[in-house]
């Protein structure tokens, strides 16, 4: 029987790289405080080296993840939803800890679960919606299909702890991309817990990597890395937007800015968000004997 005044065990919030939970290599942290100005947790202040390591992991995992069958990717997304569903209370509590009301928190987690299921269902369908057979005039069979862009860096919206992050990660990975996501700076805890959910959901190591840290410090790293194929981010702040796109130009990175989307609403989910991180590949072959 537990003692009524049992000392609780505080959780260490770490980052998630290549299927492991290291502390930031920099050893830096930032204290997260609640409204009462009490420290809730010491959060890893991820560094550019952490990001670099995460990109290496994401690149290594990308080809294999893209080759996984659409059915398998769908099942893994569904598995994430299942794991999250089982931990709803944990996430509700954690969001409350970061200042959400219970009602808000519960709604956010529930929508996050449903969103994962929404995208799980798209895994083996978006290709059919967006592909085409092209009736060329010559004696060739010609078709266009979607392929993942590759490695996507994600700056999750700052104003939500879970739903924003999930709404960015799910459409990227369901399409065979791997990603490195930067959690909300002000609400980082749920992101780390979500990494734990991913870890328990058969998501191969490196497919999703999640860092916590300062947006001002890391956004430009996310935008400039030459082995990242696309950056998806909220596009907030004119100055930062200029900087992101300028840096992205170095390797003609796809810049996907998603300002002013209410991730709690239906506009936060769409196959067009999957398409954002897809390339169209057209193949020609002669028809003869």
């Amino acid at each position: 029987m537990a003692a009524a005044n049992r000392l609780s065990v505080a959780k260490t919030y770490k980052i998630y790289i290549d299927g492991k939970f290291p502390r930031t290599e920099s050893g830096r942290y930032f204290p997260l405080k609640n409204k009462q100005d009490a420290v809730i947790a010491n959060v890893c202040r991820g560094s550019r080296k952490d990001f670099r390591n995460a990109v290496v992991a994401a690149r290594k995992a990308q080809a294999g993840w893209a080759r996984a069958s659409a059915y398998l990717r769908g099942q893994i997304l569904y598995r994430i939803a299942e794991m999250l569903e089982g931990r709803i209370e944990q996430f509700v509590a954690e969001l409350q800890l970061q200042g959400r009301t219970e009602r808000q928190a519960r709604k956010e987690v529930e929508i996050a679960v449903d969103r994962l299921i929404y995208y799980a269902g798209w895994a083996d369908k978006y290709q059919q919606v967006f592909s085409s057979v092209n009736p060329v005039s010559s004696a060739h069979f010609n078709f266009s299909v979607l392929e993942p862009t590759g490695v996507v860096s994600i700056i999750a919206p700052d104003d939500s702890g879970l739903i924003g992050l999930v709404s960015y990660i799910a459409p990227a990975i369901v399409g065979g991309n791997t990603c490195v996501a930067l959690a909300s700076e002000s609400l980082p805890l749920s992101a780390v817990s979500f990494a734990e959910v991913l870890h328990a959901s058969d998501v191969p190591a490196g497919v999703v990597n999640i860092l916590t840290g300062f947006r001002d410090e890391l956004t430009e790293q996310f935008a400039s890395h030459m082995d990242v194929n696309a950056i998806a981010w909220p596009g907030d702040g004119r100055k930062m937007a200029r900087s992101v796109q300028t840096l992205a130009a170095e390797n003609i990175k796809r810049v996907i800015a998603r300002p002013k989307i209410d991730w709690m609403s239906d506009e936060g989910e769409s196959p067009y968000l999957i398409r954002d991180t897809q390339e169209v590949k057209t193949t020609w072959h002669p028809i003869g004997s």
């Binding site: 004696a139 060739h140 002669p286 028809i287 003869g288 004997s289």
Partner: peptide, 8 residues
């Protein structure tokens, strides 16, 4: 031999 290539 590829027929379409020959035609071209």
């Amino acid at each position: 031999v590829d027929e379409v290539g020959v035609n071209e």
